[in-house]
Design a protein around this nucleic acid. Sequence first.
DNA 1: ACATTGACCTGGGAGC
DNA 2: TGCTCCCAGGTCAATG
Length: 271
Amino acid sequence: MPELPEVETTVNGITPLILQQKVTNIIIREHQLRWPIPNELAKILKGKTVISVARRAKYILIQFKHGTLILHLGMSGNLRFTDKKTQVAKHDHVDIIFNNTHCLRYHDPRRFGAILWTNENIEQHKLISHLGPEPLHAQFDVDYLYKRSRKRTISVKQFIMDSKVVVGVGNIYASESLYLAGIKPTRTAGGISKARYLRLCNAIKTVLNNAIAQGGTTLRDFRNSDGKPGYFKQKLNVYDREGLSCKNCTRPIKLITQNNRSSYYCNFCQC
DNA sequence: ACATTGACCTGGGAGC
DNA sequence: TGCTCCCAGGTCAATG
């Protein structure tokens, strides 16, 4: 479910609600996510105050004085802020309770997500240290992308989805960015010109910014922290549109499989 | 260093 | 209705 815009939407939604608020308890109903949730989490966080909330790649980082709570939503996760008395639903695995009244409720049917604690410098953390630049930061530019791509033999779609190259470009927005840039997803990363990487770099930024402005994409079950869906789906040009008409040339959108993931593109507008 | 594949899970939809 | 099969927004770990 969540790509960068969905995580950004979630962070923007929860930040004003939990900033400077005190954790009074944590309830863990299911420990087994991608990795086990640490047993001592309640002990670690009880009585502690949130000092900042941030996003790095698709990780949500809730910072306390003595360390950082790392959350990942995996494929199917969401975080909602609600009254702690709200009826608990299936797959509501964790409640982080604030001021004994409200809670952040972590819901993740497939349990590919994660909730971890660290007291080391977050940039040094094993899950964070190897990550490439943020796509919306200035250092992610055409020079960087072009240089990193040289001699790479993988497809350009796999290349931009590699988190060591750039973070936050998942399966939906990879297809959308390549469409906007006019580049076929099967092209070899190392064989694409600098001029085309300029288009691609700009396309990635444009697509992600637009999706954030729309509150992310809801295909099936994404909900932001208020429980509302995202509205970017209406703006998708190729993803999930197999056989439908290309919005530019009216030819049917194609679906292919690359490394066991779906890729959608227009065979005429992208080359 | 790079490329490829399997693994982790549940639920929804298609097809029979 | 119910069974089986396939697919899904992520990404780490193991293997060549």
